[in-house]
């Protein structure tokens, strides 16, 4: 490892740790006002959606709304399964099977 590489990893470590731990340490020691607490519950579903939607709609980088897009087709079917069954394991197993079969055919 060159000095440049050591400094690079150290710098990356510092800024990454810097957006994780200090926030955790500070915020866990204060009481957040009610409106902030109300906002926090939207973060997990919003992050999930913001990861899922581009992965389904643009798996190759550009928008692809077609039956040959296995991510989109299997994703929509998985969403229906998840909504109807509310069973995570069933959704994962059925979703993967549908995805692999769909990709095999198209």
């Amino acid at each position: 490892m060159s000095t440049y590489e050591i400094l690079m990893v150290a710098g990356m470590m510092a800024v990454t740790f810097g957006v994780r731990y200090p926030v955790l340490a500070l915020v866990s020691r204060v009481h957040l006002p009610e409106p902030v607490m109300a906002a926090l519950k939207f973060i997990p579903p919003a992050v999930l959606t913001a990861i899922i939607v581009p992965a389904m709609v643009m798996p190759a980088g550009q928008i692809d709304i077609s039956l040959t897009n296995a991510y989109l087709v299997a994703g929509i079917i998985s969403a229906v399964i998840a909504w109807r069954t509310r069973n995570l394991l069933a959704t994962i197993v059925l979703g993967m099977v549908i995805f692999l079969i769909w990709r095999w055919f198209f």
Binding site: P45, L48, I51, I52, G75, S78, L88, T91, F99
Partner: peptide, 26 residues
């Protein structure tokens, strides 16, 4: 196709959580 495992797991985690209109809007 393993990357779809991540997508489908997140779908399975998201859907049951949409229990109110504000969360649906979000």
């Amino acid at each position: 196709g393993l990357d779809f495992a991540l997508v489908v797991t997140f779908i399975g985690m998201l859907m049951p959580g949409i229990r109110s209109r504000p969360i649906l809007v979000s």
